[in-house]
Structures are given as C-alpha cells and as structure tokens.
Design a protein around this nucleic acid. Structure first.
Length: 825
RNA sequence: GCUGGUGUGGUGGAAUGGUAUACACGUUGGACUUAAAAUCCAAUGGUCUUAGACCUUGUGGGUUCGAGUCCCACCACCAGCACCA
C-alpha cells in the first residue's frame, strides 16, 4: 500500500507540467480565451512569505477552474523588479540591483513553481529587461506626443531618505510609502503626466466596471470631484479682486473674513505698508515649515492680517483679508471665505484671532443662539437665517439659489475641482527606465526617436541617490552627452528615470506579446485577450497602480492602439494574511516562510490551508495550529481513492456528489474558497463513512479537488486511469489534449439536476417563532394546504404541548420550509 | 474628523429574513498498541441535578409571525483619506 508522500509527487509533476507546457495556451489560435491575472508583484530577493503566496494561490485556483470549464486560460507571471523598492533593498545589502535582480527573479520563480501555480512559463515579463522597458519608454513618448507629458517646476514631495521626489499617491499621511520617512516639500522641475485630463472618465467608468466596492469608493474619494463656485470680491482701495472657491455659498451672508494661502500671489500686492513686515515674516516661517512641523501643530491656527479689506457684494460687508497656512495654495483658488459659524476650521481661526461670528444656519437642534462653541458649528444640515432672500430655505436649496444669483450678477462662476493631481513621474534614482528625452540648446526639448529605443540604463557602479535633486545618471558623462537628434549639435539626455508605477501601468498588455520585438503589442492578440477577464490583487493599490493602469489604457485607446478603455472589467480585492496582528515584514520579525510548510506537509496542504483559513476577500491572521487538519484531509483523500473498495454508487452518494459539484463551482466563481473546501470535506466524510465509492464518484471528486490540490489529484488521476506513458513529442510541439491526459486538462464535472431534488423535505414547526418540531413531508405533500399541515403539526406532542389551551390566532407557512403557529399567551 | 468595513463557541470560521454555531482546529472519553505516535469511534455554546426547559451572534432599542441577517442609537476594533474650503 503506497503512502501519501507529497514531496515525491509534487516535484515530479511540477517538472512534467513545465516540460509539457501544460499551461501555455496557443496565443494566436485559442478559440475561447480567458485572461486571469494576479496583480504584478515586486518581490525582493528575500523571497516570498506566506502572505505573498496567498493571493497567488487564490488566483491560481480560480484560473485552474476556468481552464477546466473549457477556457483557454492565460495565467501569466512576471515581476516588477525596477523601482525604489528593489533599489533600496540593494543599497541595504550592498549589492548592485542589476546583479540582485537575477537572484530575485530565480528565487521568485522557483517559489511559485514549488507552490504549484499553473503559469505560462513561456511568456514572463520582467520590467528591468531592455526588451520590456523599451516599450515603457515608448509609452512615455506616446504621452509626450499627445501633450500629456509635460515638464514644470512645482512644489513637490521629496523623500529625504530615498532622495527622490514622489507622486501624491505615494505619500501616505505625510510619509514616504516606501521607507516611512517624513516627506518634505521641494521646488523642482519635474515631468508630469496629465492624468487630471482624464479625471471625469476615470470617475464615470467606476459606475459600470465590476470591482470590489471599497476600491471603487477609494478611487472616487481620491479623484475627489466637487462642484462649487468661484466668487470674486473687490478689494478696497485697490484694482485687484480676490477669487475664492467654495462649495457652500449658501452661508455667504455669514462671511466675516477672507484667508489667503501664504504663497498666494495677491498677498504681496494688497498688504498694507504697516503690515508688510509682519506678513513677510509669517510667510517666511510658514513656507519653511516642514510637513512634520505642520503636522505637529495639528489644528492650531496661525495667521496674519494684511491690513486690506474685501467687500461682500451681497451685503456690502467689509471682510478683513488674512493670510494663513491652513489654506492650501494648490487647491481651489488658494483663497477661502471665512464663515466661522458654519465651518469648523473657520471657527477655530476666528476664535484664535477674535473675528466676528455670524449665525446663518439653524440646525435640527433648533439652537438659534450666538455661536460661541465649536459644537454649535453647523456644517451638514439646517435652515437658512439672517440671509435675506435665502431665509427659510433648506441649505441645499439655498446653495443652488445663491449660485444662480451670483452667476446672474456675474459675481461668481460655477466650477468643478478635483482632489486628483497630475502624476509626477520623474525619479532622481538609478534603478528605472531613463526618461527618453534629450535637451538641446538649439532645439529645446527633443523626444528620443522611437527607432532609437531603448535608451539603455548603463551599468553604474555607484548607483546611490545623490540627494542633490539630480539622479545618479547625471554624473555619467558617456550617458548624458549626446548629439541632438534634430540638429546634430551637442545635447544632454534627461537623467531622471521614470516612476516604477509606469512600468506596472501597462504590463498586462505585454503578456500575450512577450516575444514581439518590433512592437509593444499586436492588435489581433490584444483584441483576443484583453481586457483582462479576472484581475485579483491587493486593495492597497486602489489609488496607485489601479488608477494609473486605467489612465494609461484610456490614453492608449485615444491614440487608437486599443479598442477598450478599461483594462480590468472585473477586479476583486483579496484580503491580507497578517501575522501576530500585523502585516508581515522583516523589520517586525513576523515573516512566515512557506518553505518549511511545503517541506513538512507539501504544497497542496499549504495551498488548501491558506484557502481554508477564512474568506479570500478578508485574509486573516496566520497561525499554523490547524494546518495538520488539511494534511489529514489529503491523506484521507489518498486513502479513499486508493484503498476504499469500489462499489455501485448509492443514492446518498450521488446526491451529495451533485450538491458538492454545484457548490464548489459556485464558490470558486465567487472566490469563496473556504466554503468550497468545507463542502469537499463533507463529501469525503460521507464517502468514507459508507466505506465505499464508485469509480465515477472518485473521479469526479478528484476533478473538484484539482484546482485546490493540483499535485495529489494529478497523481491519483494518473493511478485511477492507469495512464500510459505520454508518447514522446517532437521538440517544441504542443502537448495534445489526450482523453487520459492530465487531470488539469479535463472538463469540470456537470451537475445532474435530478439528484439535487429532495424527495423528503423537512418543515420546521414553530410556535410563536420558537422551533418545536420538525416534520418530514414528501414531495407530493409539498403543495398541501396550510390547514392540513397545521393538522399534521398538531398531531405532534411537542407542538401540542405549547398550543393546548391556547387560541391559534394566526398561522404562517413558507412552503417546504417553516410553519409558524401564533398563539395567545 | 470624514469614508468604508468588521464584531458569532476555547480557536479559525459557516449561515438567499426561516432549525445559529456547518466545516475544521483544539479538548475530553473510548478502541487499537507492551507503550507512544498515527488512525478510527463518540462527546463537545452556556445555565438548571435529568426528561426537558430557558438563555446565547459587541450593547440598547425598533420593524416582523419570525432578526446573526433589515432600521435607529451606542461601544470596540481594523483599513483608507485628511487643515481639500
């Protein structure tokens, strides 16, 4: 009797699958394409931990299921090895990223092989290889041609530790997404992509794409579309006007002051002589404040009076103009109206400096008194007061009415603003694709010609970031000194590299096209394989990768390269596997290595354990306490298939089997792997308790288990069918689909509806909503009248006991489910 | 502060408004064994001495014949955003 020894069988099949190219669909000839993709990973040389393994495994189960459903599944893999992440690690271990990437790649692919994922190993993508980043640079050029890539000087986020600028999306609560350092502001000239041009489309499409809701919500919030109005005020003793942006013009009769951002260009023009010194001092200190200092200040308001006044057109009220850094230069018009009665920040500011507070809204608490405390500040709801023609209106009605009024008087203009900013893509680092731009004194900014791509990243011994605002490539003369492609005169290359998120913003287009050298992608292949049918990944990329990819896809559509504008019509976010209550990280020392579990129990057990732990969309805390249970399950499966006598199938067996086929299929489709596994366990329990199973049942059980535990099922399938040796195929030919071939090329079993019907139905009998009895009725009795059923129920002593001596007031019957008798007390 | 989400046995978790605690782990008892491991069988939410009854899905209300599920309020935790006007 052969024992279940995972180690022996797993390596054997992994090798065989790879040799036979079992999971490589014919890209050009596939009739029924299905593209299943797990979000592009950026592994480090340290290897994957079980938290990393988790989403790969779930995606693989789903993809294997789709393959068995008859699709030609493309399930590719690759890695994003460029970027700060990999470079910082290289710095830490003091190795060159170019050398390190080779180690990382090897280790990563080995680990994914060991876990048994069904990747198409013939078409991998690695972002740091010139044959890939050539096309990343090509993408930059397309952006440039379309006028969507531009260079400007701006206040940008600077990470002092990574020594590079960062995109807004990469600054999390004021710290660098990668290293956690406090981010500073720096004024630098940088390349941007005009993602804001696509804000509305990025927002509107969210209505129809099938994505995990919380990710859609995060994108909506990030795009942050708001409609409001720009109102202009005349400034006393001046020809200037100040324009403010507000979403709450309804409260405009409550305006008592105006505040400008320190960098607002009007500040210098309107400040009175006697206030000039103080204002200058304030601006200097506030602009030199680091984000850290500003955060430390919290909500405490600082500010300074300019001495100037604006006039409110509505009521002629004089509004003192202040300067404060709670107003952001980069949002709206960089100026706000101060309505301290109905905006908490304005209230704090007014309190700080003793400015007037006027109530113009009464909330539902009915408080009409003077506003002296923060808790009286009404922001969300209420009725207008002290506002002339707005009095008595609900604030939302008032908002529309006054907007109409202000526009009619030409004192204001409705506008839409966004939280989304343009995507800053320059990085002053080494490990990325050089931005393909040349600067010529004569011709100005000249894009590198497409035929000259790639602009290869040279091997630079000292790749350390400089911290000067210039990239390491800026000290490599042989790199940056070039001839202008236009005039032939001396010119210099751009020495910044692009953001690694650009590498990953289009990789899904490359997978079906990896061997093409003369184009990024082939039109026919794109038509066949894209958009991605199922995309699975982490919710942490809601506003990074997922937003950028959508933007890039839209641009490529507008340029005529694609015929769709949403790359991922179905996106499901997976949960996170944490450890000891925290995300796994080397620094916390809570990383769990999968290798030891694979060694001890095998990959199949680990796969199943990870999936059984809880819902895939939730993740969970990894404790290995229960992993033995899954190993036991697989051992019992082994025993069932090989050592349990075959017999004619029983009625019960067929019923459970068909129920399980239905349940497992539905569950995998919805990524409910944990419940799919539990129903497989139930099936096993029934088969082992009856101590026999038919050959057909055994086979179907194997098929259902195959996506979860691909090795053991392949081995058992092989034994069940006493498969003959595969004929030796000519070099490079594709494996034929053989009837007795791999289990992973078989069809998913179909449900026989006949066995889903129950001929005995149990109806529960409740008295006053409490369960008292369970009646078993047959199929014909299902349609019996309520009255008859009540009679039947009353025959039961258990029911009688609770009904006797009481009046039955009401009966409710839900067919085949529940009968509730309502009796008086 | 804002926006989402979560809260169920000793543990991970399951439950289209209709038998709460499926499945698994753990624990206890038993079988096998000289013994242990492995395996198999049984029990396993709580209270009351048992038949049986009552209680139980974070807390408090509500809707309903019937609520873990729907509504309101609150508490706790998690995630994302945040001086965005």
């Amino acid at each position: 009797m052969k024992k279940y020894q995972p180690k022996e069988i797993e390596n054997k099949w992994q090798k065989k699958w790879k040799e036979e190219k079992l999971y490589s669909p014919d890209i050009d000839k596939s009739q029924n394409p299905y593209y299943a993709l797990m979000m592009f990973p950026y592994p480090s040389a340290e290897g994957l931990h079980v938290g990393n393994m988790y989403p790969f495994t779930g995606t693989d189960i789903f993809a294997r299921f789709k393959r068995m459903q008859g699709f030609d599944v493309l399930e590719p893999i690759g890695l994003d090895g460029f970027g700060i992440h990999s470079e910082n690690y290289a710095l830490k271990v003091n190795q060159h990223p170019m050398d390190l990437s080779k180690i990382t790649e090897k280790r990563f692919y080995e680990q994914l092989t060991e876990i048994g994922d069904a990747y198409d190993w013939t078409r991998t993508v690695e972002t740091y290889k010139p044959e890939y980043y050539k096309w990343t640079q090509w993408l930059f050029l397309q952006m440039y041609k379309k006028g969507l890539a531009y260079k400007k000087a701006a206040e940008v986020n600077w990470c002092p530790s990574c020594k590079t600028v960062l995109a807004d999306e990469q600054v999390i609560a004021g710290v660098c997404e990668r290293c956690g350092s406090k981010v500073e502001k720096k004024n630098l000239e940088q390349w941007f992509f005009k993602i804001t041009d696509y804000a509305d489309r990025l927002l509107d499409n969210l209505d129809w794409i099938d994505w995990t809701d919380k990710v859609k919500i995060a994108q909506r919030n990030w795009i942050g579309k708001k409609t409001g109005i720009n109102i202009s005020y005349k400034i006393e003793e001046s020809n200037e006007e100040v324009t403010v942006f507000t979403t709450r013009p309804d409260t405009n009769f409550g305006t008592t002051f105006i505040v400008l951002a320190p960098e607002h260009q009007l500040v210098k023009k309107i400040t009175k002589k006697e206030n000039l010194e103080e204002v200058d001092k304030y601006i200097k200190t506030s602009l030199s404040k680091s984000d850290e200092e500003r955060m430390a200040e919290g909500r405490t308001k600082t500010g300074v009076f300019t001495g100037a006044y604006a006039i409110n057109n509505l009521n002629g009220k004089r509004l003192p103009i202040w300067v404060s850094d709670f107003v952001l230069g980069g949002f709206g018009t960089g100026a706000v109206v101060g309505v301290p009665g109905h905006d908490i920040r304005d209230f704090e500011f007014a309190k700080q400096f003793g400015l007037e507070i006027i109530r113009v809204v009464v909330g539902k608490d009915g408080d009409k008194s003077e506003i002296t405390e923060a808790k009286q500040v009404q922001e969300e709801e209420g009725t207008m007061v002290n506002s002339q023609f707005l009095d008595g209106l609900d604030i939302h009605e008032a908002t529309q009415k006054i907007m109409d009024y202000l526009e009619e008087k030409t004192w204001g203009e409705r506008v839409t603003t966004y939280h989304l900013r343009d995507w800053l893509i320059s990085r002053q680092r080494y490990w990325g694709p050089p931005i393909p731009i040349i600067y010529c004194d004569e011709c100005g900014t000249v894009p590198v010609s497409e035929k000259d791509l790639p602009v290869e990243l040279p091997f630079v011994e000292n790749f350390r970031p400089t911290g000067t605002g210039k990239a390491p490539l800026a000290s490599v003369e042989e790199f940056y000194n070039v001839k202008c492609p236009n005039c032939g005169g001396p010119a210099k290359r751009e020495t910044d590299v692009s953001d690694t998120f650009l590498d990953s913003a289009w990789y899904f287009l490359r997978y079906p096209n990896t061997e093409l050298e003369d184009k990024a992608f082939d039109e026919a292949r794109i038509k066949k394989w894209l958009p991605v049918d199922m995309y699975i990944g982490g919710a942490e990329h809601s506003v990074l990768h997922l937003l950028y990819s959508r933007f890039v896809t839209m641009v490529l559509k507008d340029l005529g390269f694609l015929d769709f504008e949403e790359p991922f019509e179905h996106f499901k976010a997976h949960g996170l596997i944490i450890s000891e209550g925290a995300k796994m990280s080397k620094s916390k020392g809570n990383v769990i290595n999968p290798d030891k579990y694979i060694k001890e129990y095998g990959a199949d057990t680990l796969r199943m354990y990870l999936m059984f732990m809880g819902p895939f969309s939730e993740g969970g805390d990894f404790r290995d306490a229960a992993i033995g249970g899954l190993y036991r399950f697989l051992t019992r499966v082994w025993d069932l298939i090989l050592n349990t006598p075959e017999a004619k199938e029983t009625e019960n067996e067929l019923k459970t089997l068909n129920k399980t086929i239905k349940k497992v299929g539905e569950d995998i489709s919805e990524l409910h792997f944990n419940t799919a596994i539990s129903s497989l366990m139930k099936l096993l329990n029934i088969l082992s308790s009856q101590k026999s199973a038919s050959k057909e049942t055994k086979k179907k059980f194997m098929l259902l288990l195959a996506p979860f535990a691909p090795h053991i099922t392949e081995e058992l399938w092989d034994m069940l069918n006493s498969r003959q040796q595969q004929p030796i195929r000519p070099e490079g030919s594709r494996p034929r689909r053989l009837v007795s071939g791999s289990i992973h090329q078989q069809s998913w079993p179909t449900v026989n509806e006949k066995y889903l019907e129950e001929e005995e139905i149990s109806v529960i009998v409740q008295v006053n909503g409490r369960v008292r009895e369970q009646l078993t009725i047959n199929n014909e009795q299902l349609t019996m009248k309520k009255e008859d059923l009540v009679k039947l129920a009353l025959e039961s002593q258990k029911v009688k006991k609770f009904v006797d001596g009481k009046e039955i007031k009401k009966t409710i019957y839900v067919q085949g489910k529940v009968l509730n008798l309502v009796v008086s007390d």
